[in-house]
Design a protein around this nucleic acid. Structure first.
Lengths: 168, 168
DNA sequence: GGCAACTAGTTTCACTTGAAACTATATGGA
DNA sequence: TCCATATAGTTTCAAGTGAAACTAGTTGCC
């Protein structure tokens, strides 16, 4: 048995009183569920900034964010980085190009690939968006100590690596 | 400024060398993104158990899981617990009832509400499914120390409360 | 050179989703 | 009592989704 005693669904048989608190804890201590609903809530809250203020989707934001640190990326590379499937990436790119936030230039070596870059317009939007995203994140983590924040990222890194091990 | 120094998209201007590692870190240290992709990967991995071995969706699993600790829940209560919208809950319930994993009984006080309970079949399925889910979780967190695991849940709790504050 | 296998990116299609409309029931006044 | 308002749950509809088919181009091999 793991030392972490994740929620035990049969536990309710042992102590029928306090059922209310205990069942709250049950799913509430099942890591996949907790993690998923936390991430979901954060995503939704943040996408209010992307969506309402800037009119872009999460997929579009991810494409833009990656383009902000790298000059030339292809759709495929963005798909690898963001773990979005290529159809989703393709549609995000189409939409961003339609709004002239990014531009595409065909590679001369390989006619199939297109390098993507931010336009001036796209850079300007990111120049506004990114600080707001960071400000929001800062507000979210404001109740954590520096150590807690570092430990969180650290632990998440461990889980990611273990996940890769389980997957691979 | 937050003490946590989340990823700074402008940082690449300061040190154009080592661009490759630095941009990996950039989005890689943006908590909402990291959290979301981690949760996504975990959900997908777990839903292989739900889906392939037991033929149920995540929504259905959540309904069943809640029913495993509480005798009588209504669709509305499940929606509140799981933060799924009522259409999704309704569809999950229909499917589960169709497979006779749950049963519905109309309340005598209020003809609109239906109490949900597991059937024997549903209980049997959960009796198999839940240990497998826990075993998978245990494998995932096996690289964490007991303290790290506790701190993780703790920190997540803090983020949830802060999120509620920001939302409310 | 020419053909099979491969790859980047797009489109199609069947399915899922959440918002809003809807149905049936309940409640709280006037 | 009657009516306005509210609520539980279902259905509809338009938009979004990923898997698979597809298009266009490339590579390796004979």
């Amino acid at each position: 048995m793991s030392p972490h005693s994740p929620s035990d669904p049969d536990a309710s048989h042992e102590a029928p009183d306090h059922r209310d608190e205990r069942h709250e804890l049950d799913l509430g201590q099942f890591l996949p569920y907790r993690l998923n609903s936390l991430a979901d809530r954060i995503s939704q809250a943040l996408s209010r900034i992307y969506g309402e203020r800037f009119g872009i989707t999460i997929a579009e934001w991810r494409v833009l964010a990656w383009l902000s640190h790298r000059e030339e990326l292809t759709a495929k590379q963005i798909g690898e980085h963001t773990r979005m499937d290529k159809a989703k990436v393709s549609r995000a790119i189409q939409s961003l190009e339609g709004r002239t936030l990014i531009r595409r230039t065909q590679s001369s070596q390989d006619q199939r690939v297109h390098y993507l870059h931010l336009t001036r317009e796209g850079e300007e939007m990111l120049g506004e968006l990114i600080p707001q995203a960071h400000a929001w994140e800062a507000e979210l983590v404001t109740t954590l100590s520096t150590g807690e924040y570092r430990d969180l990222l650290n632990t998440m890194g461990k889980l990611e690596r273990q996940l890769a091990r389980l997957e691979g």
